[in-house]
Design a protein around this nucleic acid. Structure first.
Length: 420
RNA sequence: GGAGGGGUAGCGAAGUGGCUAAACGCGGCAGACUGUAAAUCUGUUCCCACCGGGUUCGGCAGUUCGAAUCUGUCCCCCUCCA
């Protein structure tokens, strides 16, 4: 990006252009964001050992602030995760065990260091775990009025349907995080998704009570990522799409973005990429002229796969995608497959076996019956050729260079067999 | 504690003794059309299976030649009363 533009473009204007500002606790924050160097934090609950795509937006917002000169702290909710945030949740959450929480925290921390190399990563378990009940009630609890806590939208609905004291207390605990960081790290800004508003303002409240009314602390929230068709963003095949390449391959990650709906794709470029306003307008214009070329999706998928998985993995994902969707699988060489599909070779077989059985082994079907239904329905192809014979045998002799066989189910699911 | 209503496949919802593995809608998975899109149309969707077989309608125990449907009992949910 050219430096001149970076200086001219204000951070707040950029965030607004990208639709990333949902709420700001204080109009002064705009000035502070543009003109000061703030220490800010965001929190992540260690509910799994990897971040998923739902966390990506938050990380990228943090990166935008970091690029502008603000200093990020990532708080892993090792302690708060043990309590469970009730905000806008319809049900009481399953409690994490301490071991799981700490183990997950480690995985998340590793990932965050890749995305935000300069961020300070801390785990609130470190300060929350030593807090005792008396201290908690006297020093912190005393500053919260129950009426104030109950009035929050984030817990209101749960008051009727059931909310344990544990989860009800959550906002106080998170408030204390903010205060702790304010006091120990000079952190004056908390960012989070729109559901975090209640927790953020609780923290500001506590900071004011403990440090006086001239103590400046801010919060801002970004909107929930929504899809034009109303379905939930971030799921792939019914499961989460993870940032960990072991849990979701770079190919899957690339495919997730390439499949972005036309109605959403320009917004995604704004929200998720670092392309500037002019570049995005340019892409948008070309995209509207020739939507079938899917330029916007391709750029979106490339930018993000590159960012999250690195250039090599990104190129590999693109290569796999092109080979699979052009139908020219049989033209690939053994070496190209070995390189491009390295992480996706699922199964080695010594002897020839039936397609039906292989599909089960490769998890393309859950039973022989299902495999047969798919073959009969014309959904299965081997090395690019549609198969309709239920007794088809996958053999080394017919494999690509007698080494690889690519089995594809439907348009998007496939697996590779390496023959020995 | 009392009165009433209800629990059917992933979800919603019909069915109220045999024709019911259970209508219909959604969701899922495929096929066609396309742009790996949307919309639309088609097929499929309890489990296993080549024929065919197995297990279902909150749980258990009964009645019956035969039950999701009738009886008893237990569990759970909702509404009203105390």
């Amino acid at each position: 990006m050219d430096i001149e533009r970076m200086i001219i473009m204000s951070l707040v204007n950029d965030l607004k252009f990208r639709g990333l500002i949902y709420g700001m606790t204080d109009p002064d924050l705009e000035k502070a964001l543009d003109n000061e160097k703030l220490v800010f934090y965001m929190g992540v609950d260690p509910t799994a050992d990897s971040l998923h795509i739902g966390h990506l937006l938050a990380c990228l917002v943090a990166k935008r602030l970091e690029n502008y000169g603000h200093m990020p702290i990532l708080v892993i909710g090792g302690g708060t995760g043990l309590i469970g945030d009730p905000s806008f949740k319809s049900q009481e959450r399953q409690l994490l065990s301490i071991e799981t929480s700490l183990k997950n925290a480690e995985g998340i921390s590793r990932q965050v260091r890749k995305l935000l190399p300069d961020a300070k990563v801390v785990n609130n378990y470190d300060w929350l775990s030593s807090l005792n009940a008396i201290e908690f009630l006297r020093d912190i609890g005393k500053h919260f009025n129950v009426a104030y806590m109950v009035a929050k939208d984030s817990v209101k609905s749960r008051i009727e349907t059931g909310l344990s004291f544990t989860e009800f207390s959550y906002q106080i605990i998170q408030a204390w995080d903010f205060e702790h960081l304010y006091a120990n790290h000079g952190c004056t800004l908390q960012i989070g998704g729109q559901d975090q508003w209640g927790n953020i303002t609780a923290g500001m409240e506590l900071i004011r009570k403990l440090h006086g009314s001239d103590a400046k602390a801010y919060g801002f929230t970004f909107p929930l990522v929504t899809k034009a068709d109303g379905t939930k963003f971030g799921k792939s095949d019914g499961g989460n799409l993870w940032l960990d390449p072991e849990k979701s391959s770079p190919y899957e990650f690339y495919q997730f973005w390439i499949n972005t709906a036309d109605d959403d794709v320009i917004l995604r470029l704004k929200q998720f990429t670092f392309l500037d306003e002019k570049e995005i307008e340019d892409i948008s214009r070309k995209f509207i002229e020739a939507p079938h070329e899917r330029l916007a999706q391709k750029i979106l998928a490339k930018e993000l796969t590159d960012l999250v998985h690195g250039e090599a993995a990104c190129l590999e994902a693109i290569k796999i995608s092109e080979a699979l969707f052009s139908g020219e699988i049989h033209t690939l060489t053994k070496a190209e497959i070995a390189m491009g599909f390295a992480n996706l070779i699922d199964k080695c077989i010594a002897s020839d076996s039936s397609l039906v059985d292989l599909m089960i082994d490769l998890k393309l079907a859950s039973s022989k019956r299902e495999a047969r239904e798919l073959i009969q329905g014309g959904a299965v192809s081997v090395n690019g050729n549609k198969i309709s014979d239920l007794n088809f045998t996958v053999s080394k002799r017919q494999a690509i260079e007698e080494t690889y066989t690519v089995i594809k189910k439907g348009k998007k699911a496939f697996a590779i067999v390496e023959h020995q």
